[in-house]
Write a protein that binds this DNA or RNA. Structure first.
Lengths: 217, 217
DNA sequence: TGCAAAGCGGAGGGCGCCTCCGTATATGCC
DNA sequence: GGCATATACGGAGGCGCCCTCCGCTTTGCA
């Protein structure tokens, strides 16, 4: 016997960890600036490491995308945790979606990379879905429990709608557009006031404007 | 001076037209099968022409995407024309969106290409937007005129939502998912029953449309 | 039928992807 | 502290794809 178990794998070397971090940082910068198709050699250069080092840590281009992507997802999950205790259910959902859009906005160039990643490794797919759908699910369930949101739409559906809408953007004003679209979508999510009597028009000033959105040209 | 005007440009040669057609056909096949990143040399090979010929007709990869894309858009426009005279406004809209989803479904591999194209040439962008938003606008306006659809959402918005939702797909059941999402979205588009009384004198089937939406830029 | 012009095809330079291996360095043992 | 060795580094080099350029072929018009 040489090794007791696979769990004891001779901790990674210090410089390896450092370099891995550098590459991730560089990748984020380069991809954000030059799009997801930027040269990997440029990433290595920016990170100050050899191309070989980059490939050892991230055997494929997708692997590099993944690593960056995972970080983003983690942050989004935490965001939902914070919102969970806030305000009204529908508002919380709205706000999370909005923050999400804003978040994506800061990494324009990464959009293509994210999409690619989503299409790629199924493991990554499930990872992000688990994390994000859990976040949305939390917000949704509160609304459903309160009778404000219909129960026949899954968190996955909402996530898909959100990501999809965010993906198509290239013009300056895209953020506002997506916000508007998500508003419409959330309206669709609310329980349809089918009952003969209209119910509870409780509006909050701090929330969002109920209607009267400006006519879109 | 040799030529009277640019309008008289010595018609294209027959074999040129034929080859162009072949390349387009091959591109559609190759991209659909192997994704948008397939080798252009593979396309040329499949088309039975030299790589030089391909590049003369389509100087860049994006130009080739564009050409394929345009065809699709044309077909979608015609589809809307047919639906224009059918059934109820909301149903017509729903049906167009559904057909659209189905249409996209037949070219899975092309999705990335379409997105790329949309991000690329602004000329293509305006072309497809003009065509598709006009289609949606037609359907929307009928619903608005009938008082069944809210008037504060532009055709561009709906298009964006649709394309975005379609983009994110890789699993078998994605079509059904998108259909469900669009249903929710359309619910959001319907006039919210907020008005104190349900007046809605909906007569006028197919009559005049209200003031047409102003042509966007 | 003859002749330009229009179009064709593929060789070739350049670049990015990825592998492979000799060199450098951190960690563990004494 | 000093040494041994597994671990990690870096970049040269082979490969394939992108795109251009130019000599050859085909077409259409007189």
């Amino acid at each position: 016997m040489t090794e007791p178990s696979a769990a004891l794998v001779r901790k990674p070397r210090a410089d390896a960890i450092r370099n891995r971090e550098r590459v991730l940082e560089a990748a984020k910068a380069v991809f954000s600036a030059g799009g997801a198709e930027a040269s990997l050699e440029a990433v290595a250069r920016q990170a100050g490491v050899g191309i070989g080092t980059l490939y050892r840590h991230f055997p494929t281009r997708e692997a590099l995308y993944e690593a960056v992507y995972r970080r983003e997802v983690e942050q989004l999950g935490e965001l939902a945790e914070n919102l969970k205790t806030e305000a009204k259910p529908v508002d919380a959902l709205r706000r999370w979606l909005a923050s999400n859009i804003e978040f994506v906005a800061t990494k324009k160039g990464m959009a293509a990379a994210l999409a690619l990643a989503a299409h790629g490794s199924p493991e990554l797919h499930s990872f992000s879905f688990e994390r994000l759908t859990k976040a949305i699910g939390t917000l949704l369930d509160r609304g459903i429990a309160a009778g404000e949101i219909r129960g026949d739409v899954s968190p996955e559906d909402v996530l898909r709608a959100l990501v999809g809408m965010c993906y198509l953007h290239d013009q300056p004003g895209w953020q506002a557009t997506v916000l508007r679209l998500m508003d419409v979508f959330v309206d669709g999510l609310r329980v349809q006031p089918e009952p003969p009597r209209k119910a509870a028009p409780k509006q909050r000033a701090g929330g969002r404007k109920t209607v009267a959105r400006k006519r879109k040209r």
